[in-house]
Simulated scan of single mutants.
Amino acid sequence: MSPFPPIESGPDGYVRTHVSAGVGRIEFHHPKSNSLPSAVLQELAATVTAVSRTPDVRVIVLQSGGSGPFCAGASFDELAAIEDRKQGQRFFSGFAGVILAMIRAPQFVVTRVHGKAAGGAVGLIAASDFAIAVDKASAKLSELAVGIGPFVVGPVIEKKIGLAGFSQMAVDADWRDAAWCERHGLYAEVHADVATLDAAVEAKARQLAAFNPEAVARLKQVCWAGTEGWEALLTERAAMSGTLVLSDFTREAIQRFKTR
């Protein structure tokens, strides 16, 4: 059972938190397939940072609401409305903010993947320390198909699954099933249904919350070594996407995706 009380999602979505027994849970939701507009990205980054600084939180669980996709990635409505390079860079920097908040948190981040993940969502999964998914949770990097590329999420995905796996996902912008994702290390575990998934997430969260926080923080530093310059790198990558999204090719491709 979810620790969050039932709540109606407004048109702009939500980000909610719940802290209990050393576990800080963060849930995001958007009515359009859990897509991520700028407002939700900024709130999610700020929430991850705030929860990571809460003294009694020893592990963070990231999840999305609803029973559909885990996350559809960037908001196509907002992509279509971008008018200049600065605005584009700001939008794509939103994904950078969440990724950096996750990998800089001193606690392990466990991500619950209950459904499909596309585009920027794959970056969020890769930025977690332990992702647990259901077997229907296919994933894809759809950016190339709409005229841009997985530039901002690329570094964290490559670090998680290696250059070969990242290249396969980036070049062939089609779905990879959960078994592929587990085999390449994007998912740590895959379960048959949501009930089993939730039991596994609960067990892992309890286990990690019992570990020495200092040891966990140091291990995270070891695991994410080499990311110290990512603030600048991801800003540069956001500028790439922010420029490409203005091209006629990309604008036409986004409109086609919106009308599907």
Rank of each mutant, 00 (worst) to 15 (best):
I132A: 07
I148W: 08
T259N: 14
I157R: 08
D135V: 14
A139L: 00
I99C: 02
R251L: 01
E236N: 14
C71Q: 11
S128R: 00
A215L: 11
T227W: 09
E8I: 14
G13R: 01
I132K: 04
W180M: 06
E214V: 14
E8L: 11
E202M: 07
R256S: 15
A133S: 07
I254T: 10
A203P: 06
R16G: 06
D193G: 15
I82T: 03
G165Y: 02
T243Y: 09
F211L: 15
N34A: 06
A145C: 08
R25C: 02
I99V: 14
A74T: 10
L234T: 07
S52W: 04
P37F: 03
A21F: 00
A210M: 07
L186H: 08
M240G: 10
H191S: 06
E158K: 08
D135G: 13
A217R: 00
L234Q: 09
E252T: 12
E143H: 13
A72G: 00
E252M: 11
R112P: 07
A74V: 10
L244S: 09
E189P: 11
K220E: 04
V122D: 08
V152W: 02
D129M: 00
A238W: 01
P155Q: 01
A105Y: 12
R90S: 10
V153F: 02
V113N: 06
A46K: 01
R176A: 01
G123D: 15
D248G: 10
P213E: 00
W180S: 02
T243I: 06
A178C: 03
A200L: 02
A145K: 08
C181L: 05
L197I: 08
A215Q: 11
K116H: 13
G97H: 01
I161Q: 04
A210F: 00
P3V: 00
Q255F: 07
R104C: 05
V134Q: 14
D193H: 13
G147M: 02
R90T: 08
T250H: 05
Q42H: 12
S247I: 13
Q255H: 14
P213V: 03
S20Y: 09
R206M: 11
S142P: 11
V171W: 03
I254Q: 10
T17R: 07
H29P: 06
F211E: 14
A192W: 06
G65T: 05
I7K: 15
T259M: 15
L233M: 11
A72F: 12
G165M: 05
T17W: 07
M102Q: 10
L197E: 06
A179G: 09
F28G: 05
P3L: 01
F166C: 02
L219V: 03
S64M: 02
E43T: 03
V156R: 04
A188G: 09
T243P: 04
E83N: 13
P55L: 01
E83I: 05
C181W: 03
P155I: 00
P213M: 11
A131D: 12
